[in-house]
Design a protein around this nucleic acid. Structure first.
Lengths: 163, 163
DNA sequence: TGATAATAGGACTTGTTTATCCATTTATCA
DNA sequence: TGATAAATGGATAAACAAGTCCTATTATCA
């Protein structure tokens, strides 16, 4: 249904919506948690950062975090940035002149389904996705990934303990 | 939504369901009517012929015609031959372990929409598509294409008039 | 100030879909 | 029997998505 890019984006943003909104999260941590190609995920995150859905910080202590409130970003907003979502609007039989007026044989059916789908995506926020994931048994967490990657763990400012 | 191949197939089969089931129709006639690439359409039709949805006849007076009753072929049957329709069954967020038991945040939504869509495709026959198209104002007909392509027009056996 | 760790961005590879072209096979017609 | 018209099948190209790799840029830390 969605492109790989959109799938990765939805999953990454869901995880970012689950953790401290101030915290910078590494691409490598997200890739590890989601089990997706790290370089490709990086491209996706960069695109989302250009669009304002994410903020990015270069250099040491850098990473990505949400650029907007998870209540203000819908699943539709995410997919729209990465997929040509207007293709959902076009004729499912590929006709050139298919509209409500001159409908192809599948137009009414497709319009019903598609509108239902798009409405649901518009009404589902990153907060919704994060809350669902939070309540899901056995769902991994970024914190767990970090504790399993000691070479990536960094003491926060003021934390002097070093094991 | 569907691949180009499926779109071409649905449209071509709809037209074939509108005309004499005994008549052999040329790829070039269908391509002209649908305004699609003739060679690519030919590949699609050949695939459908291998699957039994179409019959084909080589040589002069050859062409394609339905291999089954238009009442017995659903839109789902057509798309299944050309697209990997199982991708509709897989997780919309791309998760590996997403099922009714361990559902991703969009699972319930997607399952509802997808089932509704697939059921509708299963319950829509080529006859339905053809009937709709038949009642549609301004929908082209294969007969019209043939009369506009005199070089393709062939007298039927016993038809001697050539005026 | 230099080393390090991170994002940013471009070039490249790989695989699939879409599309084109050509030669082959097959059936009909004169 | 030969010419013609059609599907068949293979090779190839173009466009796109997915993924990899390398370098540049930027921020932090010692």
């Amino acid at each position: 249904m969605f492109s790989q890019a959109s799938e990765y984006a939805l999953r990454a943003l869901t995880e970012l919506a689950r953790c401290d909104p101030q915290e910078w999260v590494l691409t490598s941590q997200l890739a590890k948690l989601l089990d997706v190609p790290v370089h490709y995920l990086a491209k996706v995150l960069q695109t989302l950062a250009r669009r304002g859905i994410l903020e990015s910080q270069r250099g040491r202590q850098g990473g990505f975090r949400l650029g907007m409130s998870p209540d203000d970003v819908s699943a539709y907003d995410v997919v729209r940035e990465l997929d040509d979502i207007r293709s959902l609007e076009s004729c499912i039989m590929g006709e050139n002149d298919c509209s409500d007026d001159t409908a192809c044989p599948l137009h009414a059916l497709w319009k019903t389904i598609r509108d239902e789908f798009v409405d649901a995506l518009r009404n589902t926020t990153l907060r919704d996705l994060a809350d669902f994931q939070e309540a899901r048994p056995g769902s991994g967490r970024l914190a767990a990934v970090k504790s399993k990657l000691p070479e990536l763990r960094r003491p926060g400012p003021g934390a002097a303990a070093s094991g």
